[in-house]
Amino acid sequence: MAVFENAEVLEKILGGFFRLLSGTPEVADKLIKAKLIIKFHYTEPDLTLTVDCSGDKVEISANDDTKKPTVEMFMKAEIAHKFWYGKVNLTAALARRQMTAKGPIPKIMALLPAIKPAYAIYPKYLDDNGFEKYNIHK
């Protein structure tokens, strides 16, 4: 069974998490420096989230086909959930095609140091925003 009941819940949780990160200077400043538009394609449930770092601030939008992404990532929502817990071995996930990346790989790699603080933020974010039941540590 999928971790998230439907796309609305997924948008609330992951979209909300991205919006939190976009207001976290430690992460957002580096994302803005990268000047990328990243589109995450999730399945089970189906949803896309676009993280637009091409301007002066990070903008998050769901199911947005108006922006041309620099980089696209494809994965099940469950893998994304585990990833933000720091529980996905990225190299294994890429090798097993649990995650696929479309676009210039160096630009994707450049983001990894930027998102590092996010792993610690995610479980706390779930607890603080009424999503405790999704906290896999509970």
């Binding site: 890429l94 095609r97 990346a101 676009g103 210039p104 790989i105 994707i108």
Partner: peptide, 8 residues
């Protein structure tokens, strides 16, 4: 456009 990346 379509195949740059990993396992596309």
């Amino acid at each position: 456009t379509d195949f740059c990346g990993t396992h596309t």
